[in-house]
Amino acid sequence: MQFSEVTKGVIKYLLFFFNFLFLISGLGILIAGIVVLHDVTDFNHFLDDRITAPPIILIIAGLLIFVIAFFGCYGALKESPKLLYAFAFLLAIIFIIEIAVGIAAITFRNDLEGILNTQLRQSMIRQNKDDMMAWDTVQKKLQCCGIDGPRNWFEKNETKEAVPASCCRPQYIDRDTQNCLNAAPLYMDRVYTEGCLSKVHDRVASKASILIGVGIGIAFIQFMGIALAIWLAQAIKKEAAAS
């Protein structure tokens, strides 16, 4: 296949344009990873490591894209096939990573409810200091109580008033004892009635959807950059061979 100077110039400028998109996508991936990681940090105690790993991988990938984009721009500017092939190779690695993150997020999202249910029930049985701190954080932030509702605490503690203060609506917390005032079933209007399992699941699942969209969506944009880099490298090599 022969490449004219015009064709080569068009490919070069297209590659510069896609490198600009790569920089933007790198920033997008970085921000998405940070936002998701920050948002699920409060629930880490109840999450499997497999669920918190994808946003960390995306953060690393976002940082790498800034470096990789340099190879594309510099390789196109210097018309260096080696740099362009290096750019395409590195971009292909990021492409595979992003596809893998997207697939992993889909898999983990499907397993999420079972993982959360197990972790929440085990922590309720243990009720050590770390468990209760995690429960208090989740119940206050998501305004929920127990796994399926406050009765989980009543049943576990074998008393009609044994719910953590974090289950209580702020206006019904005793300022002196920091306990819930009259939180027995007769006063259920004073505590959060929705369980935390569904709320944590919905919150984390929505973040998984962000990872899926960002990981897979941007990966296909990068695939076009790989094709352009290889195309331009071949054009430069053919021109050098012909001269």
Rank of each mutant, 00 (worst) to 15 (best):
M1I: 03
M1R: 01
S4T: 15
E5W: 00
G9K: 02
I11W: 05
Y13E: 12
Y13C: 09
F16M: 11
F17L: 15
I29T: 12
L30A: 09
V36Q: 07
T41D: 11
D42L: 12
D42H: 06
N44L: 12
H45S: 08
F46R: 14
F46L: 10
L47P: 01
D48F: 14
T52S: 13
G62E: 12
I65Y: 01
I68Y: 03
F70A: 02
F70W: 12
F70P: 00
G72I: 14
C73T: 07
L77K: 08
S80E: 07
Y85G: 04
A88K: 14
L91E: 10
I93G: 01
I97H: 10
A104N: 08
A104L: 15
A105R: 04
I106M: 14
I106K: 11
N110C: 03
L112V: 09
E113V: 00
L120K: 04
R126D: 09
W135Q: 07
Q139N: 10
Q139V: 09
K140M: 07
C145A: 11
G146F: 08
N157S: 08
A162M: 09
V163Q: 04
P164V: 00
A165V: 00
C167A: 03
C168L: 09
P170E: 15
N179F: 06
L181Y: 10
L181E: 07
A184K: 04
L186S: 14
L186T: 13
M188H: 10
Y192P: 04
T193I: 04
G195M: 11
L197E: 04
H201I: 09
V204N: 12
S206C: 03
I212V: 04
I216F: 07
Q222S: 04
W231P: 05
A233T: 02
A235K: 00
K237M: 08
K238R: 13
